[in-house]
Each structure stands twice: as structure tokens, then as C-alpha cells.
Design a binder for these strands. Structure first.
Lengths: 110, 110
DNA sequence: AGCATATGTGACTTGCAGGTCACGTGTCAA
DNA sequence: TTGACACGTGACCTGCAAGTCACATATGCT
């Protein structure tokens, strides 16, 4: 199917932009910020920032909650953890198994 | 500066394409493949596959070695580990500190 | 009600990445 | 040396994402 993107593709594409990574950094520093507040930290119009936040939200990296006329943005690390578990851990199997061995060794010594 | 991309930006952008992620999967399954061999696994021309491999190589995710008229491709997980350490670990600080404690404990025992 | 504030929508440029092709270079084998 | 094979380069087309703007909606305050 054309235009069919799965979830991890959305996450990777969302992480591919430096502005969006910066937005995640901002939200990691302090959660629950409004669009206007986040926009003031970027050298960009409100509309640009809004587009980026929409991409992050579609990827599940940011969740939002309305509070009156404000929209509060919260960081959701779960998709990143999923990527880690599914992708990056593949390259750490040796290290992980090595750590497991160390742990076993340690427990034997005890 | 315009056009100035740092290393992690290259890595994230390289990972943003599903074809390139698939190439990394292929190389993870078996290292040291040639361009032609990798191209045969993609529904794409040799030139398209070559471009993707060049992007992966520029990001440091793939390293190459010439052998006669063939170019062998190898997976390099280091950039992914660096991203993990610098980005994703932020959300896993507890686990990391637990590992560090384990390591310290082991070293003290030795 | 009237006004300022905070966010939302659609259309519109513009730059860049993905993909293909014609053509060129180096290497092995008979 | 001739031909087949493996890889490389530059130009080109095309689609999409980034960013902006005019305009619209919803909420809070007095």
C-alpha cells in the first residue's frame, strides 16, 4: 500500500529533525508546556512549531491535554524505549550477555 | 551556519529511512556483503541501494573494505550506542545507575 | 458584549532526499 | 586483449517535508 507507514517509521522520522529533538529536550527539562511557551524557544513561527509538535504527537512521542484555551504538552518516552528494545538492543547482545555473565560471576562469588 | 549537520543528525537522518533500516537488518544478519548482494534483496536499482549505503557510511553506521573489485560492507553499532547513551538513557537513568552500581560492586570485589 | 489571548486549518513556496539513467573506471579470467 | 563483472559519478526528475501566511475558532477577562 502506498503511503502506509508503520509506527516505528513515524517515530524515526519524527526523531530525524533537529528542531523536534530540541522540543523533546525542552519537554524533558520541564513537562506540561504550552505551544506559545515552546514556540518562544524556537527561532520559528508559531505555525512551524505547531507542525513539529503535531508530528511528535502523531508519533506518540508527545501527549497533550487541554486546559481551558491552552494545550499542555507532555513527553512520552515509551516509543523511544520500544525502539531501544527492538532495535538497538540487537547490537548490545554481547554486552548484555557479558553483563549477565558478570552478574552470574558476582553471584557465585557471594 | 547553513548546511552544518553534526554527527548525530546524520545518524538520525540515516535511520529515518525504512530501506536503510532494512539494510542494517541485513548486515546484522550477516556482515561483509557486497553491494550487488545487498541490492538483490531490495526492490530497487543498484544505484538506489548504493546511495543508501553511502548515507549509512557517512553516518558511520556502516564501514566498508575493498577486496579486489568487490566492496564489503560491515555493520558498525557504535553510533547507535552513542545515541542510546546520550538520548535514550535520559529516560532510563535508574537502570543505568543500577548497572553502574553493579559494575562498581564487581570491581570492588575483584 | 467586546477585546485580547491561545490554538487550529488550508493553501502556498522552496529546498532537499529518494530513485533512475547514461556513461565511466577498475578488476578478474580466458 | 577482449569481454564480463563489480562498483562509481554526475545529471536529472519527482514527491514530500519544512516553513510561512491569511484566515478561522475557542476561551478568559472586564
Amino acid at each position: 500500500m502506498l503511503g502506509c507507514v508503520d509506527d516505528d517509521d513515524r517515530v524515526f522520522k519524527a526523531l530525524a529533525d533537529s528542531t523536534r529533538r530540541f522540543l523533546l529536550d525542552l519537554l524533558f527539562g520541564r513537562d506540561g508546556r504550552t505551544l506559545t511557551e515552546l514556540e518562544s524557544e524556537l527561532e520559528m513561527t508559531r505555525f512551524g512549531a505547531m507542525k513539529h509538535l503535531r508530528v511528535l504527537e502523531a508519533a506518540g512521542l508527545v501527549v497533550t491535554r487541554r486546559s481551558g484555551r491552552e494545550k499542555l504538552h507532555f513527553l512520552n518516552p515509551v516509543p523511544i524505549l520500544l525502539i531501544h528494545d527492538r532495535w538497538i538492543d540487537k547490537y548490545k547482545e554481547r554486552q548484555v550477555s557479558a553483563l549477565a555473565e558478570l552478574k552470574t560471576l558476582l553471584e557465585e562469588k557471594t
